[in-house]
Design a protein around this nucleic acid. Structure first.
Lengths: 239, 239
DNA sequence: GTCAACAATAATTTCGAGATTTTTTAAAAA
DNA sequence: TTTTTAAAAAATCTCGAAATTATTGTTGAC
């Protein structure tokens, strides 16, 4: 057990990870399954189950889960083990409002301070996202992971010139939570709006350095995402 | 090893903890030592050292440290162990700015929505803080822990009517970081300003439901704290 | 039939030894 | 002297069994 980081007798290794330790691998594996809904909200995470499913030892799993508790993807109760964090409409609304608050502040600063390198990153990320969006309308279900990644990269590029480490840290926490809701919602795929047009309008405003317009458009983009998710979420929230 | 939660052959148990598991106890112990500066910024956290000092097992310590990494009080590098998170003037400035951003938003909402029960909590917390402040001017060095606790309780009471779970969560992360800087700074005690008067003015404005004034005063209060800490921090930052 | 006490079962939590990796030390080569 | 290489030491990381705690099921008294 040296080069290949996954535990011995198991096949469920995600190829996209570059983990250097088993804890890291366990963390990424479980995190991924929670984000894309394979491990459903509220599911009890028993060690025996996780051990058989992924092949990690108890302490390793425990540490990975502790890390996920810190990111609020997992909850824990003393002496009663771990559960996948629940989802709810209230939480989604609060989360979205808070993320908007943080993300728009970062966006303001980023547009204000962004240099040529920042513009380059945004252009590149927007281009890659557009390509994926185009392919996505052709073959919807396949590209889930790729779309999420490029979507994240675009929005991160937009705020990447914001110099505040702490604002980025907070945004990361909130964005990951939002991503989970988005992916759970997209399981019952209801796209039906022109997401690309929304992205383009934000992109144009940012390149024009129009802070207020960009923030207004990005805010509306976030709100629309919330509206769509809110419609789909209750269907599965009965867990 | 059942009732008393601390490990067998050791005496360093903090009395204020109500931990139900060893991981919890280890977490609280180490956290406390980091916050009050006993474990200095940048210190390498070797397992052998921690094991001898506190008496916890390797996995237990590892899990506690992982939790602290999630709270950014500890850093970790794959295969190279853990360190107490470093401090810097840049980080302090960024942290304070971000905390102000989050805390003032929570304060706005709280004053706007606070009911009688909220007012009661604020009055009670302010009263307790005032008592401690009075005793503090008499015997400065003794009350550090108590002052920090009551100070935290007062500021938490002020924002306790803000309904956003996520805003509270983010604030908790930032406040803990600030507390660490404050306690490290207060090791070279340089108080010399009328903190009580600042608290009183914020309290009065909040009770008068004057959102703008309260936020302005609280913002200035945070800025003054930053100014004081900035002067003292460099003296020890050379670690 | 309900409840309490107790036993049996199942799950979590903890420990410490062994595997793996990094760091240090020392010797050899350039 | 400086750099390379190899061996030794030290530290981290992982595992699975043992200890602890929670849960379930059963029995008997009221």
């Amino acid at each position: 057990m040296n080069i290949d980081v996954m535990p011995s007798g198991n096949a469920k290794a995600p190829k996209h990870t570059m983990a250097r330790s088993l804890v890291e691998a366990a963390y990424e594996t479980i995190r991924h399954e929670i984000l894309n809904g394979t491990l459903q909200p509220g599911t009890k995470l028993r060690f025996e189950m996780l051990r058989k499913r992924f092949g990690f030892g108890a302490s390793t799993l425990r540490e990975a889960l502790t890390r996920l508790v810190g990111e609020a993807l997992v909850t824990s109760e003393e002496q009663r083990g771990f559960k996948v964090a629940p989802v709810s409409l209230e939480d989604l609304a609060d989360l979205t409002r808070t993320r908007k608050f943080v993300e728009l502040e970062a966006l303001r600063e980023s547009i204000r301070l962004g240099d040529d390198a920042w513009e380059g990153r945004v252009v590149a990320a927007f281009h890659r996202l557009s390509k994926t969006e185009a392919r996505l309308s052709a073959q919807p279900e396949l590209m889930q992971d790729e779309f999420e990644q490029r979507n994240r990269e675009f929005h991160l590029a937009l705020i990447s010139a914001c110099p505040s480490r702490w604002l980025h840290h907070l945004h990361g926490i909130l964005y990951q939570q939002s991503e989970r809701y988005r992916r759970i919602s997209l399981l019952n795929r209801v796209v039906s709006r022109d997401v690309h047009a929304e992205h383009k309008s934000v992109f144009d405003a940012a390149m024009a350095r129009d802070v207020d317009l960009a923030c207004r458009l990005e805010g509306e983009h976030i709100d629309r995402t919330l509206a769509v998710m809110s419609k789909v979420l209750p269907l599965e929230a009965a867990i």
